[in-house]
Each structure stands twice: as C-alpha cells, then as structure tokens.
C-alpha cells in the first residue's frame, strides 16, 4: 500500500492504495464518492468519466497512483456552490436527458468537457464527442438536445419532438 494525495472537487484528500487500485475504486470506495459509476471493464461505456486536471478521462482505466498530485473533479463537484444544478446539469433535467441515471454522471462530465473546449458545438460535434459514453435508455435524442441547450442554442428548433 502506498499513500496518494490528490485534490478532489477542490479538497485535498489522501488515502492508502495498492498499485492496482483504479482511480474509480479510490473515488467510490476510498472516498465514498459513488456518483462515479463503473459500467464496463473495457474503457468504453464512459459511466466513470471524471475530469483530471480539467480533461475528461475514464477513471476505471487509470490507476489511482497515477493521479497523485492531480486535480480531479467528479459529478459530486458539478453542482453550483449553493447546491443547485449547474447549467449542464439543469439542461439535462429540463430536456429529459436521463432516465435510469446510471450513465448520467459520465454523460454530464463528458458534456461539460465538450462545452469547455467547444462552447457552441453542432449536433454532429456533440454526437461525435459523446461516442465514448453509452446510454441504453434515451436513444441519445434528449442528451444531444440537453447539450445544445446548455450551450445556449435553441435546441427545440434543432430537434423535432
């Protein structure tokens, strides 16, 4: 076991980890931040996406020890300081961009990363960017709509009901 220290959602945290401890396990079991989900073993479903120094990464495909010293943001760090939903989260609720909610943390983290890179993405850019986040419930329609809306574009005009 070795001790790792990193910043998670703005707070400095430390914990004992094995070499094989994944970042997702450290967040979920070590820190109790269970919003980050694990939906596959092959780095494809994207339910585990968090931000590592501002970039979207799959936390199930990275070792906790490799994140030592980094700044990690998880879904639990996305709400506004007063606890209300941030713009991206609110757009997901407004446009019914989630159903069972399991893929949602990863979807929100990926969508936020997209909007940070590309504040006014097209529909095609959104679909392409989200190719590493699998949702089984929504058929993606309302997720794409939510991201369009979060970017300040008129989602209703772009997506028929």
């Amino acid at each position: 076991m070795t001790k790792v220290t990193m910043t998670v959602n703005g707070k400095t945290v430390s914990g004992e980890v094995e070499g094989r401890t994944l970042l997702s396990s450290f967040l979920r079991e070590g820190l109790g931040l269970t919003g980050t989900h694990v939906g596959c073993d092959t780095s494809q479903c994207g339910a585990c996406v968090v931000h590592l120094d501002g970039k979207a990464v799959k936390s199930c495909t990275m070792f906790a020890a490799d994140a030592a010293g980094a700044s990690v943001k998880t879904i639990e760090g996305m709400n506004n300081p007063d606890g209300s939903l941030s713009v991206v989260q609110q757009a997901f609720q407004d446009h019914h961009g989630l159903q069972c909610g399991f893929c949602t943390p990863g979807m929100v983290m990926s969508s936020a990363a997209l909007l940070a890179e590309n504040p006014k993405p097209t529909e095609a850019e959104i679909r392409h960017y989200l190719e590493g986040n699998i949702c089984r419930c929504t058929g993606y329609h309302n997720i794409v709509k939510a991201v369009l809306a979060a970017s300040g574009q008129d989602a209703a005009a772009m997506a028929a009901e």
């Binding site: 879904i75 996305m78 939903l85 989260q89 609720q93 989630l98 909610g101 399991f102």
Partner: peptide, 21 residues
Amino acid sequence: SKRREDVRFLSGRGNYTDDLA
C-alpha cells in the same frame, strides 16, 4: 413535469446497489 428523481441522479447522489456500503 420535470423529473424530480433527476436532481439526485445529476448530482451523483443516486443510491444504486453497488453504491451502498
């Protein structure tokens, strides 16, 4: 009506079985 359950899911505060210690 907007879904009330969304608030917990969007905030990482859902309680799925594997989340329960």
